[in-house]
């Protein structure tokens, strides 16, 4: 099987088709939400949320096995979202506090998994996902959670744009600031939960941050941003998955497909950046 086959016929295999489907659902949700993350400059908060979700993933995994991961992650995400939203509204937050909280949470998660007997390999799975061995029920829960995140943002689309552009003006127009921010943060947390299973907690950030950042390099049209972000995410998923398949199934080297997908996202971003620099110069 050559690389071309990996890009095409390989997806006829059930586990590959399932992995691609999961990634497409994630790409649509993360693409749209990623644009708002970029417009609002919430990259670091997203990083904080990702790490804060980790102990939930870990505890869920240890106490409930693979099925407990989602519940644990959702509980942790809910708590972290509320805390971070309130902190940012009371202006007590800073990069330092977020950084302290996120490393603390992450270490707690690592300790939980490592300290539990009989869960060998669990840590790696939580960090890097298990894209190629996702079960049907995992695929469905991922799609549902990502779908809810997408619906939340689509229902508040206008006020999210208004808030991102002009916080004061949107408040004056009667949009409550805390609720607008909470909805977006909840959506971000849900995508993190959904994506953690597939691409792993450590690599979620690539799926969440890269498409939005990439779209800003390509277009200055508001509608175009969402189209480019979703399109780029789907394309990068396809490429990354094919590469992961080629390395691990054809090549026989055990590489998590989540890692090749994340690398594919970053590579596409690098290409967009180079093209932009070549066209407009470094400072454009």
């Amino acid at each position: 099987m050559n690389l071309l086959d990996s890009l095409t016929t390989a997806f006829a295999l059930p586990f590959m088709g399932r992995a691609l489907l999961v990634l497409i659902v994630l790409s649509v949700a993360a693409g749209v939400i990623g644009v708002f993350i970029n417009l609002r400059g919430l990259e670091f908060l997203s990083d904080g949320l990702t790490h804060a979700v980790f102990p939930g993933l870990a505890a869920g995994f240890v106490f409930g096995g693979q099925g407990g991961v989602l519940i644990g992650a959702l509980v942790a995400a809910a708590a972290a979202t509320i805390v971070l939203t309130l902190m940012s509204n009371n202006r007590v937050t800073s990069d330092a506090t977020t950084a302290i909280v996120l490393t603390a949470m992450f270490s707690i998660g690592v300790i939980i998994v490592s300290a539990s007997p009989g869960r060998a390999g669990g840590l790696e799975q939580l960090l890097f996902g298990h894209l190629l061995t996702v079960t049907d029920s995992e695929a469905i829960t991922t799609a549902v959670v990502a779908g809810v995140a997408l619906v939340l943002v689509l229902l508040t689309f206008r006020r999210q744009v208004f808030r991102a552009f002009d916080p004061e003006g949107s408040a004056a127009a009667g949009y409550r600031r805390v609720s607008t921010e909470l909805v977006l943060n909840v959506a971000i947390a849900l995508v993190i939960v959904a994506a953690s299973n597939a691409v792993g907690n450590l690599l979620v950030l690539a799926v969440l941050i890269v498409p939005g950042a990439l779209s800003r390099l390509v277009t200055t049209k508001l509608g175009g941003l969402f189209a480019v972000a979703v399109g780029a995410a789907v394309f990068a998923s396809w490429m990354g998955l094919a590469l992961g398949f080629n390395i691990s199934v054809v090549g026989g080297v055990d590489v998590p497909a989540g890692a090749t997908v994340a690398l594919s996202f970053v590579t596409l971003y690098a290409i967009a950046l180079i093209v932009r620099v070549l066209r407009k110069g470094v400072n454009a």
């Binding site: 991102a164 552009f165 002009d166 200055t220």
Partner: peptide, 16 residues
């Protein structure tokens, strides 16, 4: 650098 046109900004006045 925010990617909105003048027309889109004025449309925000209609959102409510």
């Amino acid at each position: 650098e925010f990617p909105v046109t003048l027309k889109q900004v004025v449309m925000m006045g209609r959102y409510r």
